[in-house]
Simulated scan of single mutants.
Amino acid sequence: MSDWERSSTVRVVPPAHPRRLAKVPFVELADGRLQGVVSSGSDIERVYVSSVAAGSFAFACSTNNNRPCGGARGWFCNHIRALVGEAVLQYGAERVGRYMRVEPADAEPSAMLLLTQMSGARPARGDSAAAAPVFSRFLRHLAYLELAPTTAPLPEMQWFPPTRAVA
């Protein structure tokens, strides 16, 4: 067993490239979707929760108080385009493409190529039910950033099963 498997911390995979957290503060590949939170370009207090389903490319985009995005009218809005771009920076184009089940192209994968391939499939309007859990996870991540650095255990992380003692 390696050192990281015996420790109480998880190995963090560094991002493929530095990200612009002001525009897309939260992005994840989870629940069969590329999903995240995108800042509004016009209102500092408004964010959009955007998602694209893997395989079908069904998409949803709404504000943090569940108002539909005005730009998502049959095609990917600018929030979804920004989300895909930041996902490529965070995870790399190949990983995002595999997760989203985009057919590999002859060219080197990029955010623009992934968007073109997903848009070419004529994505359908998706279900916005994912917005609440995604926004909740984003807020939980923000709360962790406000904690003072410590090596003491966090009570909410106590769900990990106990490991057997190593002699």
Rank of each mutant, 00 (worst) to 15 (best):
L114H: 01
V37M: 02
R20L: 15
V166F: 12
R101F: 04
P153R: 07
H79Y: 09
F138N: 06
V88T: 02
M118F: 09
R33G: 00
H79A: 08
P149S: 13
S62T: 04
G32F: 13
V12F: 10
S8T: 09
E108H: 10
S7F: 07
Q35D: 03
S136W: 08
V134R: 03
A72C: 15
P68Q: 13
V96C: 02
G85V: 05
V13Q: 11
E28I: 04
S50H: 03
F57E: 01
Y91R: 00
P149C: 07
F135L: 15
A22F: 13
Q35G: 07
G55K: 08
T163Q: 14
V88M: 00
E28D: 10
K23N: 11
V96G: 00
A152M: 07
G71S: 13
S62D: 04
A167T: 08
E156H: 12
A72R: 07
T151L: 13
V38S: 02
T151P: 01
R95V: 08
M112F: 07
R98N: 11
A87T: 01
A131D: 02
N65I: 15
F26I: 08
A132C: 04
T151V: 15
K23V: 15
A105D: 06
V88S: 00
A54T: 10
A82G: 01
P14M: 12
V166W: 10
A129S: 15
C69Q: 06
L115H: 03
S39H: 05
F59E: 03
A58T: 12
L139C: 12
V12C: 08
M100Q: 03
R101Y: 04
A16W: 06
W4E: 09
M157S: 09
T63C: 09
A93M: 01
M157R: 06
V96M: 02
F57S: 06
A54M: 10
N64E: 11
V49R: 01
L115F: 06
P68D: 15
L142M: 13
R95A: 08
F135K: 03
S136D: 10
L34W: 04
S119A: 15
R19K: 12
L114T: 03
V38R: 01
G126C: 10
F160T: 10
A131Q: 07
A107V: 14
A148Q: 14
S136R: 12
R6H: 12
F59I: 05
A121I: 03
F76I: 10
T116C: 06
L34Q: 05
L145W: 06
P153Q: 02
L83C: 09
E103T: 14
A148F: 08
D31E: 14
A22P: 00
F59K: 04
S136H: 11
A105V: 13
L154A: 07
V12E: 12
H17V: 14
H17Y: 13
L154T: 06
R137N: 08
F138Y: 15
V52S: 02
V166T: 10
L147C: 11
H79I: 13
V96L: 02
P149A: 12
T9E: 13
A148R: 12
Y91Q: 00
Y144Q: 11
R101P: 03
R73L: 14
E103A: 15
P14K: 09
